[in-house]
Design a protein around this nucleic acid. Structure first.
Lengths: 339, 339
DNA sequence: AATTGGCACTCGCGGCAATCGAGTGCCAGA
DNA sequence: TCTGGCACTCGATTGCCGCGAGTGCCAATT
């Protein structure tokens, strides 16, 4: 009973603070959230909550604001799921279904997510290693430089320039193309290594050296260190949250421009079916210590094709943001998993 | 003589203000810049300059700051060329020459430019219409869906999915590929329309409908409305210039996310050999009214392949920025024009 | 034991007046 | 045409004061 109400108080504090961005006091809580007790009682609870580290006061004679720990408890135990409005669902659907190719899907999703959450949105392009090969094309640029073009079932087109040690002629290139396609078409890139492992042994001797070179390059470029890509939108929303500027905003913007940071971030949280929330200090990146990240994976079947999420102030509408992230992930997953 | 000194005063004001970001007064000017006259004389000149609209004072009892008109005069007549330091030239060279493909070149240039100028940098990918065709590839996805891949001499790879009205088989696709390549290889995309104009007439009858469809699509997608791309870097630098935040920064960030705006901007100023400067109100975009844009075109030969530049506060080191923009444009032009 | 009303205390904030000083404009003299 | 002098303006800084929101504690009540 007493435990129960204390949590109610915490929930009320979080909700109120998210709304107003001002430290919230006992009087306001008692009258606006039907707690059924007097301000004095609320004060006692608040005192206890502060003792336990869930809330803090910026200075004496001010109300309380949630700590990271407080937000964490709120997210884990206190917040219900806030379903999206019908209008929102409709907006998502109509906004995404006009997309014509992969680039378009990603660009639309990231803008959509930024708009829905009014925060910074991040969408990762489908990882190559989770995709299947639809076609491999080899184009001769010069006799010793080939352009490898890989087309995946997610519609992603990836190209690499390959320098080869000795010149090849067109018939050989054509033969290489046939052999590679036969071995890889329809297979997932993650399975590619074993699929091509003994290709050279089966090929005619004259082809082997080239095949070996190409296979090495393909493996290295597309499987071992695939180029992950990221789309970003809504950085203008950072100015909204009145984060204190010079100190926080700059490093944050710098971090967001750093693909590596974002990839690491998304990589850690791209589970399907789970929306991960990282609050403040829980982020491993310094520049994100004063922000929260809400992210999840998208895709169909077992493993995630990629991840997406938003970055915003800790003072964030977690239920709403989580709902939006989840919904967009579902739509994007369906869209890219199906086609 | 008197005219002469007045301009010296304006130059001094601009330089001082760019450095300090504070309104500059007559005393400071007289003692720091060897004008050879007393503060009182400087005051007279300042009064005249204000009369003519080159400078203004934010409030009585404050120093003067340049107006847009003042900056304009400074850029046009007062600023010498500030050559880059040897170290900077070396940095540019070593930073860019490691690039492996087009994407890499563009990404590196934009970061380099942002770093050199400490401002927001924008680099446009080479326009398709200015590039020549190196190779066209057609890949069958389904019998009625083809993937067109266009490779240009600048290393850009562009792809489009094409829906065709009736199924084609592989030999036909192969034939189409041969015909298209024969007609277009080595030609500039801008010249493509005439190059393919009477291809259908010369082809064997069975090929004509497909050829017509493909030509239409190629023309539409790659020539009429080519997808221009833009790379952006250094948005974090916006926080540096103490632009007043909530009011200016948000619309600015929003504008920068809008590719259309940037493309329009760059498109207007991509002359080769001329670094264009747009100061404050000279920009046609509202969000850029309180910023300056320094940009130019890059490329080899007559027409520009693309444009690049920076966006920063009006209070900007114009000579230095112009030098950096020019230098990077030259290197990028050489890099992309040569290969 | 939990809750409540009462009360003293803290402290940030807004308003106000006084002061300071940088910078200007003007004028008379060289 | 330039210069030194001088009065004036006005934003910024400082210090002070009172208000009020919010707290913590305590004794009384249920």
């Amino acid at each position: 009973m007493l435990e129960e109400r204390r949590l109610d108080v915490l929930r009320a504090i979080v909700e109120e603070f998210v709304l107003s961005n001002e430290p919230v006091g006992s009087k306001l809580l008692a009258e606006r959230h039907q707690l059924g007790v007097s301000p004095a009682t609320v004060r006692n609870d608040m005192s206890a909550l502060e003792e336990e580290g869930y809330i803090t006061q910026p200075h004496t004679s001010a109300g309380r604001i949630p700590t990271d720990k407080g937000y964490r408890l709120f997210v884990d135990r206190l917040s219900g799921v806030k379903p999206l409005s019908r209008a929102e669902r409709r907006a998502i659907q109509s906004f995404l279904e006009g997309a014509i190719d992969l680039d378009d899907v990603v660009r639309r999703s990231v803008r959509l997510l930024a708009q829905l959450t009014r925060q910074v949105a991040v969408v990762q392009y489908p990882s190559l290693s989770c995709s299947s090969v639809r076609h491999i094309e080899i184009v001769t640029i010069t006799p010793v430089r080939l352009l490898l073009v890989l087309i995946t079932d997610t519609g992603r087109v990836e190209q690499r320039v390959v320098e080869i040690p000795e010149p090849v002629d067109d018939p050989t290139v054509s033969e290489l193309r046939t052999v590679l396609n036969a071995a890889l078409n329809g297979r997932r890139l993650a399975d590619a290594p074993e699929a091509v492992a003994n290709l050279p042994d089966e090929a005619r001797p004259g082809l082997r050296p080239h095949l070996n070179t190409l296979i090495t390059v393909v493996m290295e470029a597309l499987v071992d260190k695939p180029e992950e890509r990221i789309a970003l939108a809504g950085t203008a929303n950072l100015t909204r949250s009145a984060i204190d500027f010079a100190d926080t905003l700059r490093p944050l913007l710098e971090a967001l421009e750093e693909q590596v940071v974002l990839l690491k971030l998304i990589g850690e949280v791209r589970d399907l079916d789970t929306v991960t929330v990282r609050i403040g200090h829980e982020n491993n990146v310094d520049a994100l210590r004063s922000t929260s990240v809400v992210a999840t994976g998208y895709g169909r079947g077992a493993s995630a094709l990629g991840g997406l999420g938003v970055v915003g102030p800790r003072r964030m509408d977690y239920p709403g943001t989580m709902a939006a992230v989840q919904a967009v992930a579902k739509y994007v997953g369906d869209l890219l998993g199906a086609d």
